[in-house]
Design a protein around this nucleic acid. Structure first.
Ligand code: FES
Ligand code: FES
Lengths: 159, 159
DNA sequence: AAAATACTTGACAGATTTAGTCAGGTTTGT
DNA sequence: ACAAACCTGACTAAATCTGTCAAGTATTTT
């Protein structure tokens, strides 16, 4: 039940992009430095977010990435789904799952369990918008790259 | 955001043990057959559940496993925690996490997010008891080993 | 037009985790 | 004593994760 770094990095990167909302695109290099994420890896992540319609890219000098919608319309759930795939605790609860290799419906005791829990997770993820994050973070500007760098060097724990 | 087979098999195995509640121990071989789980692998799983105080073992002939508490006092959350470790979306939200390599507290934007979501997940998991599962399953006895066997052979999807 | 900036895409590899096997051992009822 | 049944730890193959790398394509500034 851990999140992969993709999801965690994605939220952190989007947080930076969201902070820049309304001020034009933010360069990927800038994001990578502020959040101490490998630039090459970040490219992969941002590309996925682009395909999911969460961010838009502006090419050429002074280009970068910007939010495709207002922070209030972007939830953590959107990001996690884009980066980690659909929230389904079991394979047969995924959207396109076939009946083959699966009890489906009332025959399967476990299905109801994982389905119910999955719904709660989505609810929780979708209840948090980037607007809220921005508001919560307003003013506090203590997450300096240097600090983050030390953490990443330590190896474990960064979220 | 997938569950590992440990968690899924664990719930299925415990479901069988719970069905036998009050009727003495159930042999591991029996469980493995009914749920089509590899016997050797199941040993690992049951051992963990034993260490977690969820089941008790009876050794010797006619031995087996039985629930250590009443089905109404056993939740899916107990099982998942025992088999997949503490529910913590990020490493630094685990119980014994140190401050080293981690912002902790209000400095970290992401912390609140993953913490809040984690709580909701625990809530959902802990709201489902095996009593409920037994009740729901009462009478329906259509999950035959043969059927499950076909599913497992199919490779994907069993939950 | 050329150069600079920045995004795009796909292949690849090392580390880690998962899923499962195996080979013994120990305990206990008959 | 014997057999049924659990106990334990080591081991491995496969999958996934976490990045890296290299060679593109697109856009804007000068
Ligand atoms: S890095 Fe540990 S709380 Fe965020
Ligand atoms: S096996 Fe697919 S719903 Fe349970």
């Amino acid at each position: 039940m851990k999140l992969s770094t993709k999801g965690k990095y994605g939220v952190r990167a989007l947080f930076e992009i969201a902070r820049n909302y309304g001020k034009g695109p933010l360069a990927i290099k800038e994001i990578a430095e502020r959040q101490q994420i490998s630039l090459s890896y970040l490219e992969q992540i941002l590309h996925r977010l682009g395909k999911a319609g969460i961010i838009e890219s502006v090419r050429g000098p002074h280009g970068g990435y910007e939010l495709a919608r207002k922070p209030v319309e972007l939830t953590i759930g959107d990001v996690v789904r884009a980066l980690e795939g659909p929230i389904a605790l079991s394979h047969c609860l995924e959207p396109g799952a076939t009946t083959d290799g699966c009890y489906q419906a009332e025959d399967c005791v476990a299905r109801m369990v994982w389905s119910k829990v999955g719904e709660k997770i989505e609810e929780a993820l979708d209840s948090i918008t980037f607007e809220q994050l921005l508001r919560q973070y307003h003013g506090k500007d203590r997450e300096h790259p240097a600090h983050r760098k030390k953490l990443v060097a330590a190896g474990k724990g960064a979220c």
